[in-house]
Design a protein around this nucleic acid. Structure first.
Lengths: 205, 205
DNA sequence: TTTTTGACTTTTCAATCAAATGAGTCAGAA
DNA sequence: TTCTGACTCATTTGATTGAAAAGTCAAAAA
């Protein structure tokens, strides 16, 4: 595939993301995506092996966007607390932006989409853990936090946060953008509370 | 209904619980429950208004059992940490014992079962919050914890724990008793970490 | 040679309906 | 008061099918 091909592929991804995040994955057809781009449906198959392949690429794209934003915010964070809260902020915006697409909020069978996809999620998780671990390590070095197992702690916190994400999917009704805030506010609260126990300002060995 | 009637009702509840927790609510028929007890199906309707009524009573029964056990454990707890961990322990046993019945793990439509049922859950939640608040209050009085908003903190912690419960329901496969432990171990870890921030041993105003 | 498409086949899904199963009623027996 | 046989009604299940979507391919267009 030539360079122009990659541009086209990118256009397709964007069109797909628009539809997916607006109407959900299962409710958008390849024909619709093709029509949006004023091309024929078979063309899509030239750039992607099948619908699941397209979905997988979409997932990769928005996950990378998420990680990038988080990493950026993190760099401009002056404290561990600010860094942690930026994770919630980025998640909040991400969920609002991608709405239904908020991957798997829709009834998509993870495994069918691609064995690959679980890997993508796995990588994203690892990356997030690694970023948080770094944040903690720096916090410890600078005396903001007590010494502790940064990796283990990061995993735990990330698991708690994503289990709180899970609550959103319970909601029967169609997710309302405004309702998201309640969930993420709660996540902020939890983070602050957890952080409390990690801080060293009151800590004597 | 005479006193013997209540005994019989209790028998029915027990039979129902056996079936429900083994096969799930939607997979057990009233006929089966009646057969287990060697009575006729219409007899069930003498003691309960309908299947949903039966389900609601079952729910009440096991929720009360849960609260009782928690309250007992709590009384013999010597520290806030022991008290909190006893909550997880009781939950762990409860889930193992009632397996599929682990309320709503089965595909039961909450509202249909009875508007009443949501109230029952609401009451249980309130009660749990109240018990935990008490525990915290005592902990503060005895200098084990820093002063804080006990109610607010309890709500937050209970929400975190139950969102972690929620993860179990994601699991596609039939819940394996042994797998439960991983989930509850994680809950213990989280509790310990949260508790860290609440403790006063290192706290100066 | 790369990219695109019209015309095609195959798969998947939702609507329909009949049969079966389970929920729930009731008159009357114990 | 407690219980049941014989019933009705409602819901679920499975088979059928028609339509829509996914996916293929040979050949045209760039």
């Amino acid at each position: 595939m030539k360079p122009e091909g990659l541009v086209k592929q990118e256009h397709i991804l964007e069109a797909a993301i628009k539809r997916f995040s607006h109407f959900g994955i299962s409710k958008t057809t390849l024909t619709e995506i093709a029509e949006d781009l004023a091309i024929s449906k078979p063309s899509l198959f030239y750039y992607f092996t099948d619908k699941n392949g397209l979905i997988a690429e979409v997932a990769k794209k928005i996950i990378n966007e998420f990680l990038e934003k988080f990493e950026n915010k993190l760099q401009s964070s002056s404290s561990v607390e600010a860094g942690l809260l930026s994770l919630v902020e980025v998640k909040r915006n991400h969920f609002k932006k991608y709405f239904l697409l908020a991957i798997q909020a829709d009834g998509v069978d993870q495994l069918k989409v691609s064995n690959n996809l679980s890997e993508v999620y796995g990588e994203a998780r690892k990356k997030t853990i690694s970023l948080m671990s770094c944040l903690f390590k720096k916090g410890i070095e600078q005396g903001e936090l007590k010494p502790m197992e940064v990796e283990r702690t990061s995993v735990l916190i990330i698991d708690v946060l994503s289990s709180l994400d899970g609550c959103m999917k319970d909601k029967r009704f169609i997710p309302n953008i405004n309702d998201f805030d309640a969930f993420f506010n709660k996540q902020e609260e939890v983070l602050k509370m957890l952080l409390n126990g990690l801080k060293s300002n009151t800590w004597k060995n």
